[in-house]
Design a protein around this nucleic acid. Structure first.
Length: 203
DNA sequence: AACGAAGTCAACCGCTAATTT
DNA sequence: GAAATTAGCGGTTGACTTCGT
């Protein structure tokens, strides 16, 4: 990745593109002393020719302590799948339940790995169903398919179960990344899946 | 070995929500 | 209460890498 620096201009133009080790060091140093807030001033005071947004993103996704990079485990993958099924493309919410993972990483992982996996799974499932059901179904095809295709903003609404996501994930009450909620959620998810099956059978 | 296609991922952009003045 | 500023989110882009021919 070649950094796209805008050098040699008299106007103050912000750097873009990949961050250098020097920039990382400056940003990390500044935040260690002053804290991660007021990103616009962080950028200028820390001597970074970057916009505040860029600084924030760099900190959140790479420089922040306890960041995990790469090697997403099977458990994590499974959790992402389940959470995405429930929440749709609410990457920050999903990432919030995976300690050390960032929304950007989850989003990238979803787009490059999981969405394909799901599409493949869906196709094989459809094929096997088509073979099984010799008689034409009365079901509305619109509600078929538990997984969604290509992701979408309405994915939460596609869920057969209606509940307030924000209420369910009351993050304010949780100080840590305790994972006991996961079990709770997974139990619930099993129930919602059964419910979905029931609904689609009725339809 | 060379080349193009496909995959990956860091970073940017536009927008909205939340907070401050 | 209105306007301005800041923070945060999700979608998209583009450079780099890997794979297939």
């Amino acid at each position: 990745m070649a950094p796209k620096k805008n050098e040699g201009s008299t106007k103050r133009i912000m750097n873009k593109g990949a961050w250098t080790a020097e920039e990382d060091r400056k940003l990390a140093e500044y935040i260690e002393i002053h804290g991660a807030k007021r990103w616009k001033t962080v950028a200028s005071i820390a001597g970074l020719n970057r916009c505040g947004k860029s600084c924030r993103l760099r900190w959140l996704n790479y420089l922040r302590p306890n960041i995990k990079r790469g090697n997403i485990s099977d458990d994590e993958e499974d959790l992402i799948l389940r959470l995405h099924k429930l929440l749709g493309n609410r990457w920050s919410l999903i990432a919030g339940r995976l300690p050390g993972r960032t929304d950007n990483e989850i989003k990238n992982y979803w787009n490059s790995h999981l969405s394909k996996k799901i599409n493949h799974k869906e196709k094989t499932l459809q094929n096997s169903r088509a073979q099984e059901t010799a008689t034409p179904s009365q079901k509305d095809s619109g509600t078929e398919g538990d997984e969604e295709e290509g992701g979408g903003k309405e994915s939460v609404n596609n869920s057969d179960v209606n509940f307030d996501v924000n209420e369910f994930f009351d993050f304010s009450a949780e100080g840590s990344y305790g994972l006991e909620w996961v079990n709770k959620f997974l139990e619930l998810d099993e129930d919602t899946m059964n419910y979905s099956e029931k609904v689609s059978n009725i339809m």
